[in-house]
Simulated scan of single mutants.
Amino acid sequence: MGYTLKAGSDTKVPLALMVIESYTHTAKAQTSPPANGFDTNNNTQLQQASVFLAGRITDHLGVLAQATYQESSGLFGWDNSDLRYARTLTTSSHSAIWGVSLNNNPSLSDVFNTSPAWQFPYTSSNITPAAPAVPILMGALAQQAVGLDAYTQIDGALYVEGGVYRTLSPAFLHDVNASYGGRVAGVAPYARIAYTWNLENGNIELGGLSFDARRGLTGTNVAGQTVAVAGPTDSFHDLGVDASYQLLNGSDHIITASALYLHERERLDATYASGGSSNLHDTLHAVNIDASYWYKNTWGATLGVSSSDGSNDVIRYGNNGSPNTDSRMVELDWNPFGKADSWEAPFANLRLGLQYTWYTKFAGLVHNIDGAGRNAADNDTLYLYMWVAI
């Protein structure tokens, strides 16, 4: 319904603040500091400080707009943003919600926590080694593109969405402190379908999604800024399936589970021609599965599994030539505030989290993953965070 939910009759300015302070430790120190002003291990940081404009503008128009500062980059810039118009439609036998979304991240418009924009982990360290490659839909165009999506949900069960995205100019993205990874040629279509079965004590959802994009390479201008390079483009074709389950029976116990599988076909005309790839055609696959248990919305535990693999390509991925990376994650959380009967509700919200990630494979290898003696287990990460929202 486009962020238009209203509680009571009071008119309030729809502003919110969020701060995440974190500590990161890897099993073995990184070979170099992850960012300016950081050490090779045992780093504390103001990981994220965000301001939100979120709420109704009119009865049918609402917005979620986020701007974020990160200590690791030293920049304050725009983040996930979504402007929506939505209405209801009722006939004698059916009801529907329909709307349009103008947003800056493919899959940001999704209403399930299975899509790449919203999936678990909801926060994690941003200063540790990451998987060598994942499908383009998993954040490669986040905050770099603008898209217009139309959607409908029929009888609270069938959800259908479709839209197109275009990249924003390097000059604009530089002004809002967003990264630029290359120009999307033409438009990039996005499609989503999902069906929800309402159960006596919860629900089950099953869906699919697709995304196609043709993106060019980047270079650097005389001012040191990233700009588009004229020439051929790389083509990415993503197809995925997802599922989720929620146990919501009104008791003290809540169980959720979700899964996402993405398959990507790539034709690397630009990268291959420039000598950046061993293959003209590559593939990538990614799997994310998680399950959570919460007691009284206060104590939580989550288990997660992530796996990515794809074509062997020595030029793109180096060393072993493989992007194959497998990790496991466990997270323990405590929410002392943030419930209906909490102190200073609903204004004071606090979560303390302890997260541990371990790797069974990194870049296709268990040992000597970088050619210099580093093992996959050396990237195992302990992450402690304090998340405050007001």
Rank of each mutant, 00 (worst) to 15 (best):
A86P: 00
A86R: 00
R87M: 08
T88S: 07
T88Y: 04
T90L: 05
T91K: 05
S92N: 11
S92W: 03
S92P: 01
S93P: 02
S93Q: 09
H94D: 10
S95Y: 08
S95W: 08
S95M: 07
A96N: 04
A96M: 13
A96P: 01
W98C: 01
W98D: 01
G99F: 00
G99A: 00
S101R: 04
S101D: 09
S101T: 07
L102D: 03
L102W: 07
N103Y: 00
N104G: 06
N104W: 06
N104Q: 06
N105A: 09
N105K: 02
P106K: 02
S107F: 11
S107W: 04
L108D: 00
S109A: 12
S109E: 12
S109I: 09
D110R: 06
V111K: 01
V111L: 10
N113M: 11
N113V: 06
N113D: 09
T114D: 04
P116T: 06
F120V: 12
P121Y: 13
Y122W: 15
T123W: 14
T123F: 15
S124C: 11
S124A: 15
S124Y: 15
S125L: 09
S125A: 15
N126T: 14
I127E: 03
I127Y: 04
T128S: 15
T128F: 05
P129D: 13
P129G: 12
P129L: 14
P129C: 14
P129Y: 12
A130M: 11
A130W: 04
A130R: 11
A131M: 12
A133W: 03
V134P: 00
V134W: 00
V134L: 14
P135T: 12
I136E: 13
M138K: 07
G139W: 11
G139T: 13
G139M: 13
A140L: 13
L141W: 05
A142L: 11
A142C: 11
A142W: 03
A142T: 14
A142E: 13
